[in-house]
Amino acid sequence: MSRWEVKIAGFGGQGIILAGYLLGKAAAVYDRRHATMVQSYGPEARGSACASQVIIADEPIYYPYVTEPDVLIAMSQEAYMKFAAEVKPGGLLLIERDLVALDTGRSDFVRSGVRLHALSATKIAEELGHRIVANIVMLGFLCALAPIVSPSGMKEALRSSLPKSAIELNLLAFETGYERGLQVGYNLAGNPS
């Protein structure tokens, strides 16, 4: 039995909602667990603050909002400033290294016991061929660090959700992020709480 609450935040155009959708789909359809995803975004298509909240559990999920995330993926400074303090002790805080400055001038930001990892996901994505897959690099990174969904489930979710022409690059992005996660050298076994 484990329950994961994940928040993915950044700005419109970074594939924040898609990342939440893929994570939830991997859990619900391929790992056969319960999953909910709710999203929030501004009226603009690009550039405004954007977040998706995913809960994955073995039992039905009633309240679909994340209050104390086990995992936060912050893809922008604003997302980091807004949500980093919420992450549960023992939880994971993954940041886009090149878009988030950790030196915020505040010391109360991240609760003690939170494991923080930075990855230049956008730069890695650009090297692979297109910055648009930065979100998938991050998902790969996450999957290596925490047993939220199975990597095979994630890959199935990618294959069944994306246009044919995009699948290869996205799988490569996932694998690359996953490798980088394995290099960190540990995996949160089970729920950190």
């Binding site: 959708y21 619900a28 359809v29 319960h34 999953a35 909910t36 995803m37 709710v38 999203q39």
Partner: peptide
């Protein structure tokens, strides 16, 4: 709006 947009199994 929440139930219209919530994504679930």
């Amino acid at each position: 709006a929440v139930i219209g947009h919530i994504t679930e199994r």
